[in-house]
Structure formats: structure tokens, C-alpha cells
């Protein structure tokens, strides 16, 4: 589904991604973990070209990600993205947020877009918030609305860039529950997160990054119980003790 080969990315002098290779099969849930600054968010943002990589190739569904223009927009329409800061459109209601892209990008009629939007908002458990402005919602509700907005495009794959990092602790669960449901439904997902519990529970594979490289990758139970590399062991010791 997603195939990354030899990806390199610099921010000025800083080499953020170092020869990264990654394969995500259809229906697979890959959770990317690692310390801050390890390049995991950048990798996620490169997958739909919100960041342009400096070298290497990314194929989605066998097709190289286009550099720009309408072809790139078409690819992005098929790859949903959920951001750390939700990024709901502040001037539109929750319902309108979910309806916008299907109408403008897919050419879906208003009535159909509205019906789908209501269904999706019910699916993520915020049906009664449809008419509100995003800022009136709690963080957890906003993030669930953002997931519904991405799902409205019927994406082939979903990217999650630290979807719970900006949430109050008591709201993390409700967002992770929605994501776990999606994973169970067979969605192809790349999830950058610090939620180790979610990684263990929902991931088919865990990818551990450090210093811009993929250091270790493996099935979650094996990775968490007996990491093979020192760096992964160090990292897990720091995050799992509290």
C-alpha cells in the first residue's frame, strides 16, 4: 500500500530522515514511536508530501507520490491525515468541516455529503455536536471530528501525526478508542504516537525511530517485551517506567 525507499530529508543542516525504508501492507496498522526529534512526524508528513523529501521515493498503491498540482491533490484525497492540533476549519461548523472536501474534491451532492457526515459523526460518537463551531468542543471531541472529516473522503489509508499529544489525559482514551475501531475495521494506518498501550494493543507492527533512522521494527509484543537494540531498550525503559 505504502512503500518508502531511501528517503532523506534535511531541514537546513539538520539531517532529519536518514535513508528510511518502510512498507505498509493493505490493512496493516504500523505504529511509529521514538524520542522527540527522531523524525517520526516528518516521516509521516512526507507520506502525503506535506513535507517534500530531498531524495528517495514514496509509492502509494504502486504510484509514485506526485510532486505537486492536481495529481498530488488527488493522491492526498485518498490518504487521510489527522494532526496533533486537530486543524479543524475554525470558521465552519463541525458538520461543514466534514462535508467540505467530499463536496469540493469528490463532487458529492450537498444532501449526500450531509448524510455521510452525520453518519460519520455518529460513528465517532459526537453526533450531537454537529452544529457547533470547533472551538466549542473539547479537545477529544475536536480530534474525533477531525477523524470523521478525514474518513469522509473514504481514504485508502490514514496517517495519524501524534493525534493524542495535544489532549488532556482524560480525553486520550476516547480518541484511541475510535482509532482502535478503525484498525479493527481493516483500515491501513500509519500512527505516530507516544501511546505505548495503543501500540501494543492495535499495532500489527511497531517501528522505532531514533536520530532520523528506523532503528528497529517488529511485532508489538516481541518489541515491547524484548527489544533487540540498546537504543530501543533505553527508550522503553524511560517511557514505560511511569
Amino acid at each position: 500500500m505504502i512503500r518508502v525507499r531511501g528517503l532523506n530529508k534535511w531541514f537546513g543542516e539538520h539531517h532529519v530522515l536518514h535513508d528510511v525504508d518502510l512498507d505498509v501492507a493493505r490493512g496493516e496498522v504500523v505504529v511509529v514511536i521514538g524520542p522527540s526529534g527522531s523524525g517520526k512526524s516528518t516521516l509521516c508528513r512526507c507520506l502525503n508530501r506535506l513535507e517534500a523529501a530531498d531524495s528517495g521515493e514514496i509509492l502509494v498503491d504502486g504510484v509514485p507520490v506526485p510532486a505537486e498540482g492536481r495529481a498530488l491533490a488527488r493522491l492526498r484525497a485518498d490518504v487521510g491525515m489527522v494532526f496533533q492540533n486537530f486543524n479543524l476549519f475554525q470558521h465552519k461548523t463541525v458538520l461543514e468541516n466534514v462535508m467540505l472536501a467530499p463536496m469540493k474534491v469528490r463532487g458529492v451532492s450537498r444532501a449526500e455529503a450531509e448524510r455521510t457526515a452525520h453518519e460519520l459523526l455518529a460513528r465517532v460518537g459526537i453526533a450531537e455536536q454537529a452544529g457547533k463551531q470547533p472551538a466549542r468542543l473539547s479537545g477529544g471531541q475536536q480530534q474525533r471530528a477531525a477523524i470523521a472529516r478525514a474518513l469522509a473522503m473514504r481514504p485508502k489509508a490514514m496517517l495519524f501525526d501524534e493525534p493524542t499529544s495535544a489532549l488532556d489525559p482524560e480525553m486520550v482514551g476516547e480518541v484511541l478508542d475510535v482509532m482502535t475501531g478503525l484498525a479493527a475495521d481493516g483500515m491501513t494506518m500509519v500512527v505516530v504516537t507516544h501511546e505505548m498501550g495503543f501500540a501494543r494493543r492495535a499495532a500489527d507492527r511497531v517501528v522505532f525511530m531514533d536520530g532520523g533512522r528506523i532503528v528497529e521494527t517488529g511485532e508489538p509484543n516481541a518489541f515491547f517485551d524484548s527489544p533487540r537494540t540498546d537504543r530501543a531498550r533505553d527508550f522503553l525503559a524511560k517511557v514505560l517506567t511511569h
Binding site: N48, A73, A77, G80, F83, N85, A101, R149, M153
Partner: peptide, 20 residues
């Protein structure tokens, strides 16, 4: 993030400017 979210949904640059 507003423009990024719009583009991530598949809106073209012009559409994200106009609608978002």
C-alpha cells in the same frame, strides 16, 4: 495548519485558499 489540513484532504491550493 488550516491550509495544511485543507490540502491534506485533497483540496487544490486554489480551493484551500478560497474555502478555508
Amino acid at each position: 495548519g488550516q491550509g495544511e489540513a485543507a490540502r491534506a484532504l485533497g483540496l487544490t491550493f486554489g480551493q484551500s485558499l478560497r474555502h478555508v
